[in-house]
Design a protein around this nucleic acid. Structure first.
Lengths: 234, 234
DNA sequence: AACTTTATAAAGTCTACACAAAATGGAAAC
DNA sequence: GTTTCCATTTTGTGTAGACTTTATAAAGTT
């Protein structure tokens, strides 16, 4: 009798635990009964309780420490998960037609600020790619990207006239580490031109740094057209 | 012999699988061997393989379907997890001293746009709270919030002069569902005053809607001072 | 050819048990 | 009184095995 329909599953336990926190039965910072006790209460094995509590901890509701036990987090560290889609998917999810256009691409010595930003050795060469992403004929995102040649030598042969640098990189360099930031910036003349908006208008902006095993791979700035919102539910 | 030091752990398996994807040994969209086969290969039980693959799927590298098997996602749906901290924690993490100041609080009939936004019935009363969050004496965030009285009747008695509405709500209403958006907006005169910045400057802005079991609880706009970045690593 | 049913393969989950690792609190040593 | 060390508790992770659920492919039916 491994698992009958009236078994308490780890999902049931998760719900019950959440309900007890919610109702105040288990106050913030208070200690939960240990796994063994809960296993008895729910008449299941400790394994099942373990999975439920482990997932709740992972979701930011509980804190668990060996010997110390499991406690309710006072300020639930709720984590918003933003799926970082590729621009193509994002546009298509809006029901639009994705279109890509290369603005410029070429090798150049890495500028000072990029050296600093990526901790590059001086005099390294980088591939500088600028491109546009459209939703139909409406500008969606302007992308300004630098790719470190030393980390991705193949970039010298890449043809960015048909495929965007992000899609190319995902195919070419299976990245390991990403640092992603979002901010609000101001449209200068160039940006205003590309995104078809007045100079000085606020622009939702993302910056992305990608590292491959400690080596900097690429730095990208992404400027979104007016009205863009990044949304998530949790 | 449950677990000796030379056992293959689920973490080892995760690393190995990632390595094989990375190296191209397992191409995108290709099918992995099934759990049983992998268990034999790694000389461990299916349980252990299952955990490894389950977590990798959860992290967005794999897709698993019963009977269909496990396959490598072509475009890894890497998910950025932004921890949504409370302002106090965020300021303190910066090494600053958090200070809170109430601007205004009072009941009023819900404005039209809020009715629409939260799907409220007409003529409902809401508590409108405006407040500032400081890092020392530097403005950090201006918050404009509406709390639905019908959903949280206690709000009529709440004293927002000492505690921020967000902290109050977290203590009072254990929320279930949040919709969070970020965008860039423009500082109008009011905002420019509160955040000590020039009128017209870009402002990183967040909007947060909270629902409790289908009932709208609160709508909040959060305006961040100049230079704010929301950052995550993954 | 198109639809329906059915066997089956694969992941999903549970039981029962065992050993491992970490952290804590108190005993022992200083 | 303070520090060091160790036993104990609690979570972490593994083994072995079984039953469950679901999607698919193949067989059968219209």
């Amino acid at each position: 009798m491994a698992q009958t329909s009236d078994t308490t599953s780890y999902k049931d336990i998760k719900l019950t635990v959440l309900e007890r926190i919610r109702s105040g039965q288990w106050q913030p910072d208070s200690l939960l009964p240990n796994e063994e006790a809960l296993a008895v209460e729910f008449s299941c094995t400790r394994t099942t309780v373990n999975r439920a509590l482990r997932e709740l901890a992972d979701e930011g509701y509980l804190e668990r420490r060996r010997k110390a036990g499991t406690r309710v987090l006072s300020a639930p560290q709720r984590q918003a998960r933003f799926t970082i889609p590729m621009v193509r998917d994002e546009v298509e999810a809006l029901g639009g037609t994705y279109r890509y256009a290369l603005v410029s691409a070429g090798s150049e010595p890495a500028p000072e600020w990029l050296n600093a930003r990526l901790a590059l050795n001086p005099n390294q060469s980088v591939m500088h790619v600028r491109c546009m992403h459209f939703n139909g004929n409406t500008p969606f995102q302007y992308e300004d990207r630098w790719i470190v040649t030393a980390s991705v030598p193949q970039v010298e042969q890449a043809d960015f006239s048909q495929i965007g640098p992000n899609e190319w990189l995902i195919q070419t360099v299976p990245f390991t580490n990403v640092e992603l930031s979002f901010m609000a910036s101001r449209a200068d003349a160039t940006l205003a031109g590309f995104l078809d908006m007045p100079v000085g208008d606020p622009v939702f902006t993302g910056e992305r740094i990608t590292w491959l095993q400690g080596q900097p791979v690429t730095f990208a700035k992404m400027f979104f057209a007016a009205g863009y919102r990044m949304t998530t539910e949790f």
